[in-house]
Simulated scan of single mutants.
Amino acid sequence: MHGSASSLSATLSSWLLVLLCAVSGAYCLRRAHGWSGAAAGEAVMGFGMALMAVPLGGGGAWRTPVLGVVFCAAALHALWLLRGGAHHAHHLLGSLTMVYMTVAAVSGGGHGHGAGLPLLTGSLLLYYAGYVVLGGTRLLTAGGPVPASSVPSASPVPMPVPVPAPGAPTELVRACRLAMGMGMLAMLLSM
C-alpha cells in the first residue's frame, strides 16, 4: 500500500513537471519570432524537458536518442547565439545539462538513480539552485515601486511610474524562465 501511494505521488509530480515545462515551452514558442532568438531555444528546452519528464515506465527506448539529438541541436543553437553576448551562456549550460541528464539516464538504466557523476551533478544543482533563488528574487522585485496614483500622498507632485526598457523581460517571461529553472532543478534532484 505504501509503495503504491509513493508511486502515485511520483507519477503525479512527474506529470505536473511535464505540464509546467510544456506550458513554459508553449509560451516561449508564442513569443519567438522565427528560430533566431533566445525564445526559440527556450521553447525547445521547455518542450524537451516536458518530453524527458514524461513517466513512461519501462517503455520509451526511442526517447533517449531523440532527446540527445534535440538537446545537442539546442546546445549548438545556444552556442550560435552566444556570439551576440554572454547572456546566452545560461542557455548553453541548460542544453548541455539536458544532454548530460539524457546520457546519465541511459547509463543508469533509465531510472535516474545512481546515474551521473556526483561532482558534476552537485555543481549543476548548486548552479540551478542559485539561478532559481536569484530568478525568484528578480521576479519579486520586478514590479518596481508602486505607482504614485495608488499611494495616498500629501505631496501634490506625482511620482514618476517606471517604464520598462524596450526589450526588457516582462514578469511573465521571468516567471517562465523561473519555472524552467525549477524544472531543471527537480530533474537534477531526481538523478
Rank of each mutant, 00 (worst) to 15 (best):
G37P: 08
C72F: 06
W35A: 07
A50W: 10
L96W: 12
G3K: 01
V106Y: 00
A73V: 13
V103N: 04
R30E: 09
A53R: 04
G41E: 00
V54D: 08
L56T: 10
T97K: 01
M49W: 12
S36D: 13
S4G: 02
Y127I: 11
L126A: 13
L79N: 13
L17S: 01
M98N: 08
W80A: 13
Y27F: 07
V70D: 07
L96Q: 07
A10T: 10
L17W: 04
S7L: 05
A43K: 13
S13E: 06
V70G: 03
H113R: 05
W80I: 02
G60Q: 08
G108H: 00
Y100F: 15
T102K: 00
A115Q: 09
G108R: 00
G109T: 01
S14R: 03
W15E: 06
A22W: 15
H33M: 02
G122W: 04
E42N: 04
G41Y: 00
L81N: 02
L20A: 09
H91Y: 09
L19Q: 09
A78D: 10
A26G: 11
G110C: 04
Y127F: 15
M45C: 15
T64P: 00
L67I: 09
R31I: 14
G58H: 02
H111E: 08
A75T: 09
S6L: 04
R83K: 09
G135D: 03
W62F: 10
G136E: 02
G48R: 07
A39V: 01
A78F: 06
F71V: 09
T121K: 14
L126W: 02
A89C: 13
A39H: 11
G135Q: 02
S6F: 03
A75R: 14
R30Q: 12
C72L: 15
H111M: 12
A43D: 10
G58I: 01
A53F: 14
L8S: 14
A40D: 00
L120G: 00
W80D: 08
S107T: 11
G116Y: 01
